[in-house]
Write a protein that binds this DNA or RNA. Structure first.
Lengths: 207, 207
DNA sequence: TTGACAAGGTAATGACCGTTACCGTATCTG
DNA sequence: CAGATACGGTAACGGTCATTACCTTGTCAA
């Protein structure tokens, strides 16, 4: 549908201004005039490129989702399970607690009721890929006998929750600033440790 | 004859209309006129009772938060740890996946940047109480030796994430309807099982 | 050089916004 | 019954909104 990269500088300026304003104020509270004031140029250009305010918003969400979540989860398959999970958890925390990602998430959640297909596309192009990748990692580990038999999908769901923990909830509400590297490493290590012990069948020990 | 504390019916009607509209459309996209059209009466009354649109919004958020999260977590202390955690997880899932709670959460997240103290008050009056209660339960269990020594705060944070798992994320994005009782019980049981195994010190068995 | 045409800046449009001034009315005091 | 007072409905106000018609300007072929 849309070209992956467009070399149009007007388009890039509009996108940058739209990102700053939509992510800060939300969709309804951001006016076309404010976007133009920040990006320069003319309203005419927005309607020529995007058709409407909602069209600009949709393009912004889609492109940011793809940019942020574009193929970041395919770590080296040579690593052991624990290292793979820790690497994934670290990456997830770094990504999800970034100011940009929080802004994107907030605005998608805010409009999820009025633009359901936009929220679905955000999830499909973004978080769902990480969840599926982790489910694959767990399925392979279970097949190799590294962990006990699990339902990969629900185990991945638990792992994601464990990594986000309550910390992500608080960050989304604006109660915490972004995490430092030390904090991220600590949360990731602790989540992986809890998870690996947690999914072992009752009464079994890790080797 | 008259009740000791008279609940103003105009105020209640305004609150009901405001809830339906703010939770559905968000703050900026909801107009005072639309609220009046739904609640009846006059705009004059809104400004007499709440001072402004934002005042009405703040009162709505505060009262809904208190109504939803008011003292629901103080279960019977006679139960065992596993039953206590399962009861809490079930309650949390029922509450957080309700349509009303999702609407409240969406709108608080959407306005978290512009009304930070509102988001903080939501958290303090709501989710934080559950987290603190669970932390207390875990601290007491650790002191009794039922579980190994843990940092109650970060263990509670992990437990909350584990219960919400990725399912809550998907519901907030509108990708899933509310959960059924069976689904909730399954998620709660599984989360508690993973958690209790997960927080045991490395190499220790549950009795 | 000139004509035409496309692109983008300007200003208009019609609707709607939050807020408040104004005024009728109903209730209460004397 | 008369007057005052507080409440709530109506309509207006100044501003802003998304969208579009109009027009200026720059470009390029002939």
């Amino acid at each position: 549908m849309t070209e992956p990269t467009s070399p149009d500088p007007r388009r890039a300026a509009l996108m940058a201004a739209a990102e700053a304003l939509f992510f800060e104020r939300g969709f309804a509270a951001t006016s076309i005039d404010a976007i133009i004031e920040r990006a320069g140029g003319s309203k005419r250009t927005i309607y020529a490129l995007f058709g409407s305010k909602e069209g600009l918003f949709e393009a912004l969400i889609r492109e940011n989702t793809e940019k942020m979540f574009g193929a970041p989860f395919f770590g080296a398959p040579s690593l052991g399970l624990e290292e793979t999970l820790t690497g994934f958890a670290t990456h997830l925390l770094e990504l999800f607690t970034r100011e940009r990602t929080i802004g994107l998430y907030r605005v998608v959640v805010a409009e999820a009721r009025r633009m359901p297909e936009l929220a679905a596309s955000f999830h499909r192009l973004g978080p769902e890929r990480g969840r599926d990748w982790i489910a694959g990692v767990l399925a392979a580990a279970a097949e190799r006998g590294e962990i006990g038999p699990v339902d990969p999908h629900s185990a991945a769901s638990q792992f994601l929750g464990l990594v986000r923990s309550d910390v992500y909830f608080e960050i989304v509400l604006g109660l915490r600033g972004p995490l430092g590297r030390t904090e991220i490493a600590q949360i990731a290590d602790s989540a992986v440790a809890t998870f690996l012990r947690g999914i072992q069948p009752r009464g079994r020990l890790r080797p």
